[in-house]
Amino acid sequence: MSRNNIKILPGALVCEESKLRGDITIGSGTIVHPSATIIAEAGPIIIGECCLIEEQVKIIHRLPFDQQNKENTTPVLIIGSHNVFEVDCTVESPKIGNNNVFESKCYVGNKVTVSNGCIIGAGCRVTEEQILKENIIIFGSKCQMREGLDRPGLQTLQMETLSKMIPNYHHIKKPNKKV
């Protein structure tokens, strides 16, 4: 597990300065900024298509203490498509669906399963064991919860700009897998 096994699919944009540890698969169209950290500690991480992982983001696959001793299976952290991880958020969730937004400086603990279309607001700390239903929005200093009408909009424009800009200023890890 200590050996790094990074699989980058074509079309993904992974900066050389990002810290990737463990067995990680990054889907096409995903952008990983420099100084983002992805650590596959407990098992492999598979990141879907068109995710945006910004600076200082920490995605850590770490099991809760009570589940660490189960040796029979290695859990896989599957992160769906079109997720946005904003600057300096920490996500340890064991399962993440599609179209979620993790706003700046939020913290999602390793007992929280995130489904689809959820928004974790800036600075919100979610640690209690729970499954976030679809389109849940958490916001404010008291982590108030409400249900959104539909999924948050896609960041297509931002992603397009980034995919043009980042290669001009950063070294990019070459995709090493064929489709």
Binding site: R146, G148, L149
Partner: peptide, 9 residues
């Protein structure tokens, strides 16, 4: 912009 409430809700 904060809690994503909209008048459509």
């Amino acid at each position: 912009q904060f809690c994503r409430w909209s008048s459509r809700d």
